[in-house]
């Protein structure tokens, strides 16, 4: 049962990952990434990491990808990539990055001892065990991440709010309106005079 689910999820993960990079429409690509995240969550379930699996779906699939799709739908057909937009340096970069990932996979598989499966207890991967790890062994990293997230939240608010519009007093508003009115009058006067000068020439 487990092995069937594993191969199914692994197959789906690869197919959806390919869809992310091969689809021209960003909306479909984002859906591919969503499928990839869900497949990975399934793989994590098989590794007895229930909490990480659930958190992955909630945070990445449920919140982050939703925002991606929102932005892509907002941008609309402008986001679609036409033919001939691929640049040569992108191809080089992609090949290098791909080779790096392949090297990493090979190294990891090479150095791992697959002989003996590690033993785990019942609490492993549950919310209790994960929480325990957060506030004991990895407290510093956990707090560091929370500070970074807080900074991101504050930055989001500041960027989203933009520059504050200057508040004008009533006098300033009236003065501005007066200026605009005077400019409009001057413009229309100039137009009328120009028309008067042009008129005799037209009449002939």
């Amino acid at each position: 049962m487990g092995i069937v689910v594993f191969f199914l999820a692994a197959f789906l993960a690869i197919v959806s990952a390919l869809a992310v990079v091969s689809q021209r429409n960003p909306f479909v690509s984002a859906l591919g990434l969503l499928g990839n995240l869900v497949s990975l969550a399934t793989l994590m379930l098989l590794l007895d990491a229930q909490f990480v699996a659930a958190a992955q779906v909630i945070v990445y699939a449920g919140a982050i990808m939703v925002m991606f799709l929102f932005v892509i739908a907002y941008v609309g057909p402008r986001g679609e990539i036409g033919p001939g937009t691929r640049k040569p340096w992108q191809v080089v970069l992609a090949v290098v990055a791909g080779l790096l990932v392949v090297t990493q996979i090979v190294l990891v598989v090479w150095t791992t001892d697959f002989g003996k499966p590690s033993s785990i207890d019942d609490a492993f991967g549950g919310p209790g065990a994960v929480g325990q790890a957060f506030v004991t062994d990895y407290l510093l990293a956990f707090e560091g991440v929370s500070v970074i997230l807080f900074m991101a939240a504050v930055a989001g608010v500041i960027l989203g709010a933009g520059a504050r519009p200057k508040r004008l007093t009533t006098d300033q508003v009236l003065a501005k309106e007066g200026e605009a009115e005077a400019r409009r009058r001057a413009a229309s006067r100039a137009a009328i005079e120009a028309a008067r000068e042009a008129e005799p020439g037209e009449a002939r």
Partner: peptide
């Protein structure tokens, strides 16, 4: 969490 996850999907 699972219910929340499926619900958001």
């Amino acid at each position: 969490l699972v219910v929340a996850a499926i619900g958001s999907l």
